[in-house]
Design a protein around this nucleic acid. Structure first.
Lengths: 231, 231
DNA sequence: TGGGCTAATATGTCTGCACATAATAACCGC
DNA sequence: GCGGTTATTATGTGCAGACATATTAGCCCA
């Protein structure tokens, strides 16, 4: 019931004109100056509205060329990448986790190359099982570059999982995430307490701090897990 | 090699201070005014930089309370939701598709309620198979509200898939996406030419135009599909 | 005709100022 | 003390004007 005001009102009106085909996909829309005159506001205000829409993928803007309605509305969805503990707690469940193994090992070639490391370098290999209400929720397989840990691993891993401790301690500048699906291996099935071959939702994350690789982690979520977002 | 200038330089400097723990997670950072004085620029410029960082989840801002470094760096990843055809073509493969079935039917209760429709309303039910280089790539199961189609379905469905025609014709204002994993049903396995029970990557999308539901679609991607993004 | 220089133009960003808004802190009367 | 009102404060947004920059269109000359 609240009519937006200011730049949000302009964004809404522009969206409406696009939706109602007043401005067709691919068409050039008036300049910021013209729109500012029409709406009776400053150009900066129009700029703010159009910039947001360009960011959302609705408009395409180029200097001198002007602003046009995106031909292929590649909508951009933003999704939050929360820490596992908060994800569980946010569902109103009790979070806990168990460190299954912690070793130093030479990673498989695929892992080393994904991290841009020389083959043969040793990494920390951690495997953790996360629980929601004492039920297995997530199986985590992590390779960690010890070089980025100034003082080794934290003393107590009671409250916080490795991941949570990592994000608070080692700031990353660049990350890379992919989502996919995979059938549960016998091991994974046993850990997550599902039938072997069950479809798992897989998240793989690689993070760097500048040039130095930090970690590569594979998260296998049990059945029923959904990643959710809005556009 | 290019030192950023203007508000991007400020964003970079703020990020640096956070990464290097000059400003610890949870700590309050100086006000816009103070930072503007320090950097020798206008407050609006600082505002722009801090706003971007808040949008990215690095900072948390509240009026009067000030700006603090996010305690739990819930990084926000943005992912593009492209049209299937472009997704395939973008991989350098040849795109094609086949409409398997097109019927009018009363949807299951779950579908009707997700769309906010009265049970018993009839919808269009479309099932489509999409190919990449003549190999099955994606199985699409779509329920479509005929009320939003002013002139029925398009005449030729040769070039463009239903989805692509939809996004160009019926603009949506609100959407809802979820990703999950599921084992292939016998039908899906047959269509996608995989073993029954294979892990499929599932995307479910619901879209509305204002209050009116447009479509609910379930996309089942064959093995090997990855959704990819960066932070 | 064609290639390269130049001018025109729309967007990108900055400044300095103003007022609006939300949320906290201070205050005051009981 | 305590609860409720008021003042203060940091951010949110607006305006008008200016300059920067990318890109196009047109011009001129070989």
């Amino acid at each position: 019931m609240s009519a937006p005001q200011g730049w949000e009102a302009i964004r809404a009106e522009v969206l409406r004109r696009i939706d109602s085909r007043v401005w067709a996909p691919g068409a050039l829309i008036p300049t910021e100056e013209d729109l500012a005159a029409e709406f009776g506001c400053a150009r900066a205000t129009v700029n703010r509205a159009l910039r947001e829409l360009a960011l959302a993928g609705v408009l395409e803007r180029r200097r001198k060329a002007g602003t046009r309605v995106a031909t292929h509305p590649v909508r951009k969805a933003t999704l939050d990448i929360p820490v596992t503990r908060l994800e569980v707690v946010g569902r109103g469940q009790v979070y806990s986790f168990r460190l299954l193994a912690q070793t130093k090992a030479v990673p498989p070639l695929a892992v080393a190359s994904r991290l841009g490391l020389a083959p043969g370098a040793t990494l920390l290999h951690l495997r953790t099982l996360h629980f929601a209400d004492a039920k297995p929720f997530l199986y985590e397989d992590r390779w960690l570059n010890p070089a980025v840990l100034p003082e080794g691993l934290p003393p107590d891993l009671a409250e916080m999982s490795i991941n949570e401790w990592l994000v608070k301690t080692v700031a990353y500048t660049y990350g890379d995430i992919s989502f996919s699906a995979a059938n549960a291996s016998p091991d994974e099935a046993a850990y997550l307490d599902v039938a072997p071959g069950a479809a798992l939702f897989i998240t793989e994350r690689t993070t760097w701090a500048g040039e130095a690789p930090i970690t590569l982690v594979r998260l296998a979520y049990g059945p029923g897990y959904r990643l959710h977002t809005q556009v």
